[in-house]
Computed example of a mutant assay.
Amino acid sequence: MKNLMKVKQTFFSQSSILVTGMLVFLSSCGNNQQQAEIPPAEVPVEQVKEGLGLSRREYPASIQGVSDVEIRPQVSGYLHKILVDEGAYVQAGQSLFKIDDRVYMEQYNTAKAAILVAKANQKTAKIDLDRKMEMVREGIVSDLQLHQAQASYDAAAAALAQAEAAAQSAKINYDFCTIKAPVSGYLGRIPYRLGSLIGMSSVEPLTVVSDARQINVYFNMSEIDFIQFQEKHAGSSVQEKLKHAAPVDLMVANGSVYPHKGRIDAVEGRFNETTGSVTFRAKFDNQQGALRAGNTGKIVIEQQYDKVLLIPIASTMSIQDKIYVFGVEKDNKVVQKGISVLGKSGTNYMVSSGISAGDRYITAGFERLQPGMTVLPQQTKVDQVNAQLQGR
């Protein structure tokens, strides 16, 4: 029994020594791992460069003819003839519609007959006046009778003038029965049909004539864009700045660009308080009639910026409407910088503030980095080539 107890004591003592040694070994291994340094991540880095930037802004636009004239009747009557078709191109002075003119023709004939009566009355009054003048010279009648004859003649002359005016008014109404185009252009929809009763109180016009040889394109610009527009162009007034503004393009509904450029020629006098925008007007030639009033599209304005800082859009991060770039300081520490942009130029941002030319920034792989981390900058192929060229 004593020998058995000694064997157990020896076994337990040796086991405790073995466990203690293993714990010491594991502890030393953990300390070595904690003491081991994590190597910095290699990231591609480039320097901020200045270059030529081309900003392209698009604004939804509506198209109208230079003159969109509503054609309305100036007399009432039944629509007797429609002499044109919807969408046709008409010349100024061309007949478009015909109102039943029989009533107005009779009114005109009556007015002309009234002229003949007035002329006869005037002639009779003139004969009486001449006779009274002769009798006064002979002393047969008094001057009072002569004055009465003169008054009768003046009244007859006034009645003739009144009859002539009434005849002229009747002729105008008679001519109004033929409705003519006041300007050249394309016709719109014709909502009325033969036999329709039309007049000046009609709600809808007979049609609309759009003079589309030139078209006006209206678009809205925000207050910030308007300020930048003024700062970009020379001149002491808005009109002078418009004269220095570059031509603009019109993108039509299918995405193609209208072949003729236009010029901005007017700006609304005040901002819309609801939308916070101001309306611009650009004028385009449209001799071939490719555009029609009522079309929609987009005005495309391009602005060139010389020596502007360019940062690839792919090398930035957007957080809550703010744009950031991950820069690399001299000690290779990562710093997150907020930048302000003027706009886009191709695949680049044009930067106005937040970073300077020559600053280093991480082009890719920055999503897993945190500010303050140390990185190992890795030159891109472009920077390597530039460095080689500078070394030569």
Rank of each mutant, 00 (worst) to 15 (best):
L250Q: 04
S236Q: 01
K132H: 08
Q14W: 13
P312I: 01
G21D: 08
N109L: 12
K171H: 09
H147K: 02
L26Q: 11
S202G: 05
F284A: 04
S210G: 04
L242F: 03
I362V: 00
K2A: 11
V7W: 07
K8H: 08
E50N: 09
A163V: 12
Q91R: 13
I264W: 01
S16V: 10
D331K: 11
A149N: 03
Q168E: 13
K180C: 13
Q64F: 06
Y361N: 02
K344T: 13
N348S: 10
K344M: 13
V382A: 10
Q288P: 15
H260F: 08
S222H: 09
H147A: 00
A151R: 04
E106L: 08
R392C: 00
M105L: 15
F326Q: 15
S152F: 00
G30F: 08
M135Y: 12
V43P: 13
P44T: 15
N286F: 14
A234C: 12
E240P: 04
I82G: 13
C177M: 08
A161M: 03
A61N: 08
Q47K: 13
R189H: 10
V136A: 08
Q336N: 12
T380F: 03
V267F: 10
T363H: 05
K119L: 15
I63F: 10
L146E: 09
P205E: 02
G51K: 01
S315F: 15
Q303C: 01
D101C: 11
T347V: 06
D306K: 02
R392E: 04
E46Q: 14
V238T: 05
E58F: 04
V328L: 09
T274N: 10
D143H: 00
P44I: 15
Y324V: 03
K232A: 02
A120M: 12
E223C: 09
M373F: 05
L389P: 04
G391E: 09
P377I: 05
G195A: 08
S315Y: 11
Q228N: 13
I71D: 07
R263E: 12
Q122H: 01
L26P: 06
I264V: 10
V257W: 09
P191Q: 01
G289Q: 06
G139S: 00
T124C: 08
V341C: 01
M133Q: 05
Q35V: 15
T275P: 09
Y258Q: 03
K171Q: 08
F366C: 02
E231K: 11
T10W: 11
V209W: 02
S196G: 05
N348A: 00
Q74K: 01
L291W: 14
G327E: 14
D359G: 04
D359E: 07
V136D: 07
Q370A: 07
Q122D: 05
L206Q: 00
A364K: 04
Y186D: 07
T279W: 14
I71V: 06
V141P: 00
M1V: 01
S352P: 06
A158V: 01
T110Y: 13
A357M: 14
Q370D: 05
L144S: 06
L160C: 08
I299R: 00
V382E: 12
P377K: 06
R213P: 01
T178Q: 13
